[in-house]
Amino acid sequence: MRALFPGSFDPVTPGHQDVLRRAALLFDEVVVCVMSNSDKTGRFPIAERLDRLRATATDLSNVTVDSHTGGLLVDYCRRAGIDVVIRGVRGVSDLDYEMPMARMNHELAEVETFFIASDPTLAHISSTLVTAMSQQHRVPE
């Protein structure tokens, strides 16, 4: 079964890496996809996010990396023949946010959502935190 792990991955975090590795054990193929919205400006260019994801997945033979700009997630799923979306959740607030989208994806395209609870040791890490920490520890040029 093919599964899609979508996200902005802006940047890729240890939590993303953990969910991806665990999903790769559960599904025949996992497509990790950088989703971008043309109305939002990312911190990192899409090409850099794709490169970081490829580096993360080098030892995962059943993982491919892709990107999708504009359009609905279910449009990508239909085009790619994907029936399952993977979402990592850190806590109840993430689940509250994800549930309406999961229901809508099922209504629109019969795409199921598979929730993977985050590793508790990584649950506090967010893309915003990773970016802030990396900026504090940069060496001046």
Rank of each mutant, 00 (worst) to 15 (best):
T69E: 13
G70R: 07
G71S: 04
L72E: 09
L73R: 03
L73G: 02
V74E: 08
V74T: 12
D75V: 13
D75G: 10
D75C: 12
D75W: 14
C77Y: 11
C77W: 12
R78N: 13
R79A: 10
V84P: 05
I86Y: 12
R87E: 02
V89Q: 09
R90N: 03
R90L: 03
R90C: 05
G91A: 13
Y97R: 11
Y97C: 07
E98A: 05
E98C: 06
M99K: 00
P100G: 13
P100E: 09
P100S: 12
P100K: 12
P100L: 11
R103M: 11
M104G: 02
N105Q: 07
H106F: 05
H106C: 00
E107I: 02
E107Q: 09
E107L: 07
L108N: 00
A109S: 09
E110M: 00
E110T: 00
T113R: 08
F114M: 01
I116M: 15
A117I: 07
A117C: 06
S118C: 14
P120K: 07
P120I: 11
T121K: 15
T121N: 13
A123D: 06
H124S: 12
H124V: 06
I125M: 13
S126I: 11
S127K: 12
S127Y: 13
S127G: 13
T128D: 15
V130A: 12
V130P: 10
V130I: 15
T131M: 02
T131I: 02
T131V: 07
A132T: 14
M133R: 08
Q135D: 14
H137R: 08
